[in-house]
Structures are given as C-alpha cells and as structure tokens.
Simulated assay, not measured.
Amino acid sequence: MKAILYIGHGTRSKKGANEAKQFLEAVMGYVNAPIQEVSFLELTPPFIEEGFRRCVERGATEIKIVPIFLLTAGHIKQDIPDEIAPLHKRYPDISITTTEALGVQEVILDAIAELVKRHLAGPIFSADSILLVGRGSSDPQTRIAFNQIAEGIKRRLTVSSVDVCYLAAIEPTFDQGLETITAKEKGRIIVIPYLLFGGLLLNEVQLKVKQKQKLGHAISCTDSLARHNAIQQIVIDRANAEGERYAAVNH
C-alpha cells in the first residue's frame, strides 16, 4: 500500500509549526494516497522516525518521502538521508523513494512577484528595490540558486535592484543587507523573506524591518511564501507524481 511521508524543517515557534501543519493538511486533501503522514526534521514533533513508523503501522508497503524544503542543501543531501537510512534497515521490505526540494522554478518566481504586488496593493516603480533574504547554507549551490532567484525577480518586477542576503552561515548577513540597501534607497524597499512558513526567522526579519521603518525608511516586508497557492500546488504535484518524477533513496 502506498504512503506519503511529508518532511518539514521544524521550528521552535508554535505559530510557525501550526502554519506548516495546516499547509500540509490542506495538501493531503488533494493527494491520491491511502496513507499520508506529516513529520519534521527537527524541533517540531512528530519527527521522521515516528512519521515513518506510523506509515508502516497503517500498512504501508511503499513510502514516498516528500521533503518540504525550498532548495537543495545540507538537509536534503545529508540530514534527511541520514535519518532514512536506519529506517530502511529496520524495515527492509518497505520500498522507499524521495522527491527533490522545490528548487528554483518559474512558477515560484511568478508567485513571489505576485506576492509583492499583492503586498504593495499598487504599482511597482523602477526606483523601488528588493532585498531577498535567504535562510543561508554553507552549500555552494545556495549562492548560485539565490543569484538565479534574484535575476528572475528583477525581470518580473523591473525594479532598480535586487540584493541578496542571508540569515545564517554565509554573507552578506541580513543586517549587512539592510544597511546596504537603505543607504542607497531611492524609492521603496521591499524585503522578501525566502521562507516557506512563519517562525522565529520570519519574526526576526519583520522586527528589523519595523526598526528601519521607525527610522523613516520606506521599507516593508512580504509574508512567507507558502501563503501563495502555487507552493501548495507544487507539493501536491510532487506527492501525486508517478515514479519517473522522483529518485530512489540510496541504501
């Protein structure tokens, strides 16, 4: 029997955890699988081992792992496979496959542009600028991906500039990015947190944007990306896809 095990990142924020769970509950209603379970890599229970065990207890003979992560980095390449490997040994008769991270997709860039327009509730001007804020990773592919994202957003919104900064692991930091973009501001500054759900990281971004607002800067912040239904549709499509759309886990 086929099962889907969704894996989110996890957060210490109760609000962020609830947002992720509600998102996945909505997804599950559109996925054609008799068994579906939600789990998280860290911080938020149930964790991967428990979610996997629940699938087995409900009669799963094949489990598709669907990670709810924006980009391919250490969690996708190392942490999740490390969690799955001992489960394969414990349940050798269970077929295990996994989908990829959401990646840099045109539909996601379209959704970001729409979120910005919805946030501004009016026209975007060429003097406006964007600060794209990533979670951050030491994986070298992270910078490559964010350069692609920045270029795609700039094409769609025709703003004067799109700067990139990160919340952890690599520079420029978010604080550095804020200082740089406010020093050269000509029009409005729109901060885009490249985060799927709310949580402590989004709270940090919003707080620092408010501090800049109090100093008189014309700066504002968009919401988490999962607020756009395009993200939900991508996850639904991944979960419903047949075997050629995803790769086997290395055992």
Score class of each variant (00 low, 15 high):
residue 240 N to S: 08
residue 240 N to W: 03
residue 240 N to L: 04
residue 237 D to Q: 06
residue 238 R to T: 03
residue 213 Q to H: 06
residue 210 K to H: 12
residue 224 S to H: 11
residue 229 N to R: 05
residue 232 Q to H: 12
residue 233 Q to P: 00
residue 222 T to W: 03
residue 224 S to Q: 13
residue 224 S to E: 14
residue 229 N to L: 12
residue 216 G to A: 06
residue 227 R to P: 02
residue 212 K to L: 07
residue 237 D to P: 04
residue 213 Q to C: 07
residue 223 D to V: 11
residue 213 Q to L: 03
residue 239 A to M: 09
residue 207 L to W: 14
residue 213 Q to W: 05
residue 207 L to K: 15
residue 235 V to K: 00
residue 239 A to W: 01
residue 215 L to F: 07
residue 214 K to V: 08
residue 221 C to A: 10
residue 220 S to R: 06
residue 235 V to I: 04
residue 212 K to Y: 07
residue 219 I to S: 12
residue 234 I to Y: 02
residue 209 V to C: 05
residue 224 S to I: 15
residue 218 A to I: 11
residue 230 A to E: 08
residue 235 V to F: 02
residue 211 Q to N: 13
residue 209 V to Q: 02
residue 221 C to P: 05
residue 227 R to K: 15
residue 229 N to A: 11
residue 220 S to G: 12
residue 236 I to G: 02
residue 233 Q to D: 07
residue 211 Q to R: 14
residue 238 R to L: 08
residue 232 Q to A: 14
residue 228 H to C: 10
residue 230 A to H: 01
residue 230 A to V: 10
residue 226 A to C: 07
residue 224 S to T: 15
residue 238 R to W: 02
residue 214 K to D: 13
residue 224 S to A: 15
residue 212 K to E: 13
residue 216 G to V: 05
residue 226 A to D: 02
residue 211 Q to V: 15
residue 213 Q to M: 08
residue 232 Q to F: 14
residue 238 R to C: 03
residue 211 Q to E: 15
residue 227 R to T: 14
residue 234 I to H: 00
residue 239 A to R: 06
residue 220 S to I: 09
residue 238 R to V: 00
residue 211 Q to S: 15
residue 208 K to S: 07
residue 215 L to G: 01
residue 235 V to D: 02
residue 230 A to R: 05
residue 240 N to H: 03
residue 228 H to L: 08
residue 209 V to K: 02
residue 227 R to G: 14
residue 215 L to Q: 12
residue 225 L to I: 09
residue 229 N to M: 09
residue 212 K to Q: 11
residue 223 D to F: 10
residue 227 R to C: 13
residue 235 V to R: 00
residue 224 S to R: 09
residue 223 D to W: 11
residue 216 G to R: 12
residue 223 D to Q: 11
residue 240 N to M: 03
residue 236 I to P: 04
